[in-house]
Computed example of a mutant assay.
Amino acid sequence: MRIQLLLSVLALSIFAGSIGAQDTTHRFLACGQKTYIMEPDGEPSWTYPAATRDGYVLDDGTIVLTLSKSKKYRGGAVISIAPDGQEKLIWKGTQSEVNSAQPTAEGTFVITEAGDAPRLLEITAAGEVRTEFPLACQTQNHHMQTRMTRKLADGTYLAPHLLDFAVFHYSSQGKVLDKLETTLPGDPEQKIHTWPFTAIRHGDGHTLVCCTHGNRVVDFDDQGEIVWTLTNEDLPGDWLQDPCGAQMLPGGNIVITSYAAGRSDRQAPKLLEVTRDKEVVWTYRDDRQVGIHHFQILSTNGDRLDGPIMK
């Protein structure tokens, strides 16, 4: 195991050599087929030898990972890794996939399971179920049911449902309160291109949504109207390639991951940071032919990010 980790770190160090000097630097956790913490100088300081779908680094240094399904965990899993390296199983998936696991301020974890009976659960660190209800998404395609589900400050939940082409807002009891349709206006045939993946509630009821395949990021106001859109027409090139994950930084900038970047177009960044005026202020590239599924920015220009993690 130790040799494997060292080899992974060495490989990432070599591949990260294409990163140029930039005024802005970030330290971040990357999740996907490769899982690692990348330092601002392009050197990884930590890797994990398994594919992941979502991840968080807590204030005390504990890392919470949503593991992709594997031979060890046929239905996926959620684990925590203490600063001393001690690994603990929080939840073993019981269906097709576990797609996200959000640590809450109460010390619980909000997870989703995909399968014949898609559901949301809020569990304790010991795996005790505190909340459970079915998700109102399609059941034919398990993999395309839901992604980055998050609990909001008022105790309700946001859940992007990909093939339902909408972000669903659930009450604490599982009632659908409302939903944000991500279909392009006036063109029902474009539904297949507007799969919502990450939804971030911010400001006065706004919701930022990453739409994969549509290659756009949109911001809805509290009335459900789109008030801001980022597409490849706003960027130097086709840089949005399956924009799965995003994070809103304390200053208002948005970091976005393009999951497909690096497969065919090596010039497209895997992470990019934009201002609300759509100015690109930071990018991350490497030579690996796998993308970043989701991520967490941990520090900017050497300063640790404080406050709620908005991703």
Rank of each mutant, 00 (worst) to 15 (best):
S299D: 11
A246L: 03
H294T: 11
F165K: 00
V78W: 08
D178G: 07
M1R: 13
E273K: 09
S299C: 08
R147M: 14
Q145H: 12
R276G: 04
R53F: 07
T146M: 15
L208E: 01
F220P: 06
H169E: 10
T198G: 00
R285C: 07
E106A: 15
A101L: 14
D84H: 10
Y73V: 06
S80F: 04
D277W: 01
F168H: 08
G20D: 07
I90P: 09
L10R: 13
Y170P: 12
P134N: 03
G17R: 11
M1T: 11
G251T: 11
L305S: 11
A16Y: 00
D265Q: 05
D222E: 12
D234H: 15
R147T: 14
P308K: 02
R150S: 09
I297W: 02
S13A: 15
T35Y: 02
G75K: 08
P103W: 15
Y73M: 03
L235V: 08
P83W: 00
D234V: 13
G214D: 04
W239M: 05
R74D: 14
G76R: 07
C210Y: 02
H143F: 13
H213W: 10
E181D: 12
T66L: 07
D41M: 06
W46K: 06
I226S: 02
V57D: 02
P118Y: 15
F15C: 11
Q267I: 03
I297E: 08
D238W: 01
G307S: 07
D277E: 11
T183M: 10
M144K: 15
L235D: 04
D287M: 14
C210Q: 04
G127F: 03
M38W: 10
L152W: 12
R53P: 01
T131N: 05
T62R: 05
T24L: 03
H161K: 03
L249Q: 09
Q173A: 14
G61Q: 03
G307D: 05
A260W: 04
Q95Y: 05
H206D: 02
K69R: 15
D222H: 15
K69S: 14
L89G: 10
R285D: 01
E279L: 04
E43P: 00
F15H: 11
A136Q: 10
W228Q: 10
Y157K: 15
E97H: 12
K179R: 08
P269T: 09
V176I: 08
T131R: 14
L184N: 01
L29E: 05
E39R: 12
Q138H: 09
F109P: 00
T283C: 09
Q289A: 11
H202T: 10
F168Y: 07
A159E: 02
C137E: 08
I192H: 09
G20E: 13
S171R: 07
A21S: 14
R2H: 11
M248H: 03
L152N: 14
S100R: 12
P188K: 07
G127W: 04
G61V: 04
D178E: 03
P188T: 04
V78N: 11
K179G: 01
P44F: 09
Y56G: 00
Y56R: 13
M144P: 00
S18M: 05
D238S: 08
F197M: 06
R263A: 07
T112E: 10
E189V: 09
K191L: 05
P49N: 08
E181C: 05
L152M: 14
R119V: 12
G75Y: 10
G214C: 06
N301Q: 09
T47P: 06
M1Y: 02
D116E: 13
G203P: 06
D116L: 15
E39C: 02
I192F: 07
T257Q: 08
